[in-house]
Amino acid sequence: MTTLLMNRNAKIKASTGEKRPVTVGSVLTYIGLLFWAFVSIFPVYWMLTFSLKNNAEIYGENVIGLPRYWLFSNYENAMRVGNISRYFVNSTLVAGSTIIIVLIAAFMATYAMTRLVWKGRKMMNKFFMLGLTIPIHASVVPIYIILARLQWLDTYGAIIIPYSAFSLSMGILICNGFMSDIPYDLDEAAFLDGCGVWGIFFRVITPLMMPAVATVGIYTFLQCWNELMFANVFIKSPEIRTLPVGIQALCGQYTTEWGPIGAALSIATIPTLLVYVFLSKRIQDSFIAGAVKG
């Protein structure tokens, strides 16, 4: 009986992963996992290292090692000659404005759908959730025609507005989760203290929604920082280009100077990586939530 129990305990231990014997299988598993980790990370490692090398090293002397001389001048070149600093500012501006618009629109709509009482609010929510499945392809041509008619092509607004609209559904989805968790007693208490719906929205709900700001902000940032199709079609003049379009242009122009190009690619990637390092769990969660609902 005791042996049986011990056996059982051992099995439970093994299954919950407290202590595992080292077997051939587990070693092979580990090698496999490490191999894929290497495959995932290698192109990024290669990019970061060749962004600091000169052509001689990149072209053969030292292809995959760490740079021998750390050429930060590549970054300077990319910034100055390649105009990357301009594109960086544009991308930041576009992402920032988009985040603000999405937050305002999503907060207000979610408030109407979770705290206000009316028929059809569930339907309205479902309607907004349709946006998670609509591909941007559906609207490139019509939006282009509309923007051309309004003479709005080649402005920041030409991409900020579409970006906001396409991030809105996800924003509402995330806000819904957070706002439903705020106790309804607070609304009532505030109402008894003389607040109207707008007062409750601004003074009670919005301050409590700060965690949602971060999640919506990150998700929206990732969407517009990397977007190519809209930015490519709606923006022509170099002064308004965002990073993806700017990098496309830069790489087409300078094909032999790999160092500065690597620097430009790194400049576009480092902000995302930084955000990811600090908020990886939250980013992953938001992607899971979006997929499960969509």
Partner: peptide
């Protein structure tokens, strides 16, 4: 690490 490539711009 496995998820990281998803976040990098497709242009990059």
């Amino acid at each position: 690490v496995y998820f990281m490539p998803v976040l990098i711009s497709t242009v990059v």
